[in-house]
Nucleic acid binder design. Structure first.
Lengths: 201, 201
DNA sequence: TAAGTTGCGTGCAGGTTGTATGTAACTTTA
DNA sequence: TAAAGTTACATACAACCTGCACGCAACTTA
């Protein structure tokens, strides 16, 4: 074993983390197209060479950022679903929905996940990343609902897609509304009957 | 009156139309970021000067393209709703929904309206343009439904937003699916109970 | 017809991305 | 532990792209 002060893996991990953190901040603030690689590496205190060594592309860095953000949101959602306690299916879905709305009130999510994601990565790759995190979570919840008989049997995958799309739009709608609180109440009022409709036999 | 062969308004209209048509084709094929102004003006057989005279910006050209596409889709939707004949509200909504899916199977719509729109123009401006065309149409249908008593009274504006968001995602889902026909059938199966839920008192 | 406005063509400046080339840090092998 | 090899990073450079400035031509108005 050598006496190296920093292993190569550590160096890589540190610069990757710094770049992802910087990208996350700046992409959220100015959008993918609005921030240059120069600004990113300055924020991360590394050189452009490091960026292009760690990520093949500015786009690849964005993908890494998106993946991290989605991962965090998914954790928040399972936490929210966990506290939701005993199992009315409708309530579980609605609590997850509002947890999603809350998570999306940070600009990170809106700009990176909802606005730029599809445009920068293309819809297919964007949804593939969602699939690994939030979208997969929703599908799982729906599958359990169907298995438990609490949910009308319907094709789960397309259902998860449209429900998540609803949640995405709701998040953007709420944030853009003059009175977010009122808008969120409206949204819940609109979504509740839709979820309830799915719950009946 | 002069004997001018072409009036200024005609010149402007012709170059504007050529630029919008070129932008429409190329934006649909390669995305907003993937096509340079040089390619656009070559396709339109004008100079870059003409572009920057007619539109302040590459972004402004994109907005004009989006506006045109939305206008055409809205016309298709009213046509579809017109042939839908006598009035079951659920059937009207579902026919409009499938008409939307059909319209979105042309790549023009997907890439320009659904993918790049929010990213290039920002969500607020994007939805404002939708409001003038498709989104406004949906809101109108819902308002009539409420007035006629065919629809549970709910806040119409947020409802229109989530329904349209569902339709957007459905369109992209169907197109990306290995078997679009099957995916579309699934989507209709999923959306129908949701619409029916809104229709009952 | 002369003056003024509108539409358009072209060259230029600033900025951006990705790559090529060189160097330092770390790891493996003998 | 010393040499060889690999990995991580720094920097200079080439290609490109956007938007503007300036100038000219077409049209309109007085």
């Amino acid at each position: 074993m050598t006496l190296s002060r920093r292993t190569q893996a550590d160096r890589s991990a540190a610069t990757r983390a710094a770049l992802i953190a910087a990208g996350r901040t700046l992409f959220a603030q100015h959008g993918f197209a609005g921030v240059g690689t120069e600004a990113i590496v300055r924020e991360a205190s590394v050189s452009r060479g490091a960026l292009y060594h760690q990520f093949g592309d500015k786009t690849e860095l964005f993908a890494a950022v998106l993946d991290e953000v989605e991962h965090e949101i998914a954790q928040e959602l399972v936490a929210a679903a966990g506290t939701s306690g005993d199992g009315d299916f409708v309530e579980l879905m609605l609590e997850t929905f509002t947890a999603w709305l809350d998570a999306c009130q940070t600009p990170h999510v809106q700009r990176i996940v909802l606005i730029d994601g599809p445009s920068v990565l293309g819809w297919a790759r964007w949804r593939a990343i969602c699939q690994h995190h939030v979208l997969g979570l929703v599908e799982g919840m729906l599958s359990e609902g169907v298995a438990a008989g609490a949910l009308t049997p319907l094709p789960v995958k397309p259902l998860a897609h449209v429900l998540l799309a609803m949640a995405d739009e709701a998040a953007l709608y709420v944030d853009a509304a003059p009175s977010p609180a009122a808008a969120q109440a409206d949204m819940v009022a609109v979504v509740r009957p839709l979820i309830e409709a799915l719950a009946r036999e």
